[in-house]
């Protein structure tokens, strides 16, 4: 069965891999830059596509049909279903903007640069363990993870936080595929289920929040304190 697969020569594999990773990183960084929530959701969808493409490229290179299929599944979830759900939430609440983030955009981008350096430094042991083109892209995943966390810390709208969380999740998935072509299938399924459920929970809570607080500005959530 393997011989029927289309083989990807390394000369093509590495640029494709790098392209997907670059797109992944760029979309992640763009989330920090854009303020329009709708645009942020779009960027997230694009990142999902980049992630799916990456997995497919890996799968094709390793001639692993299962991996290609997983890649398509991931794409469907992260570029299709999740953005769809978010867009629905967005429509329900009326489009909004990230008006005044806790840390402003310019600083955020500079912080992101620092985070990228940190991710690069931290990822060295991971690369050293098996220096392949795929693992060399791990710092990108870690950068996006940290950026996602940063979005969570600094963005005031509920939806932005959801996107931040999903950025982290994308980054983790990417790390998984870059390092070992993914975790065992049962676990991968479970993880995807959980992410989906988490987003649904977020959506329900956003609805309730809107009902209770009249908006989704997380700064309003200050009633429980010491």
């Amino acid at each position: 069965m393997t011989e029927t697969m289309f083989t990807l020569p390394p000369s093509l594999y590495v640029p494709l891999l790098d392209l997907a990773c670059g797109a992944f990183l760029l979309t992640g960084m763009m989330v920090l830059w854009r303020r329009d929530l709708a645009a942020i959701v779009r960027l997230f969808a694009l990142q999902g596509i980049a992630l799916a493409a990456l997995i497919v490229v890996l799968g094709v290179y390793e001639q692993d049909v299962e991996l290609v299929a997983v890649g398509l599944g991931v794409g469907a979830l992260r570029a299709g279903l999740l953005p769809y759900l978010m867009r629905r939430a967005l429509i329900a609440g009326g489009a909004g903007r990230e008006v005044r983030p806790v840390v402003n955009v310019a600083t955020s981008l500079l912080v992101a640069a620092v985070l990228a350096m940190l991710a690069y430094a931290v990822a060295q042991p991971l690369i050293r363990l098996s220096p392949t083109p795929a693992t060399q892209a791990v710092p990108i995943a870690l950068t996006v993870l940290l950026v996602g966390f940063f979005v969570l810390v600094t963005r005031r709208r509920a939806l932005s936080q959801v996107v931040g969380f999903l950025l982290m999740d994308n980054a983790i998935t990417m790390t998984a595929f870059l390092t070992t072509s993914g975790v065992p299938l049962v676990v991968e399924l479970g993880i995807s289920m959980d992410v989906l459920l988490a987003v649904l929970v977020f959506q329900v809570l956003t609805t309730r929040m809107r009902a209770a607080f009249g908006g989704t500005d997380l700064d309003e959530l200050r009633e429980l304190h010491d």
Binding site: F149, L152, F165, A198, L205, R208, M209, A212, L221, E223
Partner: peptide, 18 residues
């Protein structure tokens, strides 16, 4: 379903998910 409960749930889910 009160304001406080919703707030607590949101914080709970966000922080724990992270």
């Amino acid at each position: 379903h009160t304001r406080e409960a919703t707030e607590a749930a949101w914080k709970y889910v966000v922080i724990c998910s992270v």
